[in-house]
């Protein structure tokens, strides 16, 4: 994985600290061309991996990328599924069974809902596999070396003790898409134990990691301990801690943590993108020099 990965929250008005900023982003990125323009800025700054949710609009972005194979030759997307609000709103409107009917392709689910089919464990894992395929459709022809399950789903399954789905996700993504499975979570220490128990060693985990102790369930110290053990390949997200600490201080902290392979961030302006990239590179360089000096 690359050291710096570009995220998509800003494109879809996801802002953890301000509804006003969220609306401003929604206006700024109304047209797909604005998203592409920002992605191009990120690429020019040396970032070639885009981590994004399976939002409907990403399908349009994929279309643009497919049409220009030369320009996007080295470009990679890490899909993150599912886009939770799509399903959450559907569940509110149609209930859980209604949502499954709407989103699971094919009609064998219909017979399960009617109770006409013998229930074997494999059925539910198969339903998940069908849903993965449905979410992956938009990425056809695009390089997706790591495929993630979103934190709301990871953590829901984690709390419910449904480890088999997490393991099933990993197996299917490897087998069908020849990709590495990734897990986004707000509960890194707990998830890692469960994945290891399920036979997944050194998993790719993307988690909130920041100096502000924001969304690090169990606390920053526990996270630092787990990181120091080097049991997983970590992508740090929410590194600014929701904006609670100055950016430079926040990036210094996360850049210097052991075993954080990549840093995920999103930004709207050219200046912010370039500043963030430069700052991370500066601290990385500084650390390398310190190692050489020792």
């Amino acid at each position: 994985m690359e050291r710096i990965i570009f995220g998509d929250n800003q494109f879809f008005a996801v802002n953890h600290i301000s509804d006003e900023k969220s609306r401003a982003q929604s206006i700024k990125f109304k047209d797909d061309s604005a998203i592409i323009k920002t992605l191009d800025v990120a690429i020019a700054a040396g970032i070639n991996t885009f981590m994004c949710t399976t939002h409907d609009r990403i399908a349009n972005i994929c279309e643009i990328i497919r049409k220009d194979p030369v320009k996007y030759q080295d470009f990679k997307i890490y899909p993150c599924m599912p886009y939770a609000h799509k399903y959450a709103n559907a569940v509110t409107e149609m209930g859980i069974a209604g949502t499954l009917k709407q989103y699971v392709p094919g009609n064998f689910l219909g017979s399960i809902l009617k109770g006409g089919v013998a229930y074997i464990s494999k059925d539910y894992i198969s339903i998940m596999e069908l849903m993965i395929d449905a979410e992956m459709k938009m990425f056809k022809g695009i390089n997706t070396p790591v495929i993630f399950i979103q934190n709301v789903m990871t953590d829901l399954l984690l709390g419910l003790g449904m480890d088999e789905f997490l393991i099933g996700f990993a197996n299917y993504v490897r087998q069908k898409y020849n990709a590495e499975p990734g897990f986004i979570t707000m509960n890194l220490p707990k998830l890692l134990d469960v994945l290891e128990k399920g036979g997944i060693s050194n998993p790719i985990i993307c988690a909130s990691i920041n100096k502000a102790n924001f969304r690090m369930s169990g606390g920053k110290e526990l996270y630092e301990k787990v990181l120091s053990e080097g049991r997983c390949r970590v992508i740090a997200m929410q590194v600014l801690g929701g904006g609670a600490i100055p950016a430079s201080e926040a990036l210094e902290y996360v850049s210097n943590l052991p075993n954080v392979e990549s840093i995920l961030f999103g930004a709207s302006s050219k200046q912010n993108i370039e500043n963030t990239v430069d700052t991370i590179r500066f601290y990385d360089q500084q650390r390398k020099e310190e190692v050489i000096m020792q």
Partner: peptide, 30 residues
């Protein structure tokens, strides 16, 4: 249920629902 399932002081002793699919999944996987 998920939050309760992860709570260190909680033991989930029963879940009641009328949906066959939900009950089936919860029994089998949780």
């Amino acid at each position: 249920l998920s939050i309760l399932g992860a709570h260190p002081d909680v033991q989930i002793v029963g879940v009641c629902d009328t949906s066959k699919i939900i009950v089936d999944v919860l029994e089998r996987y949780s």
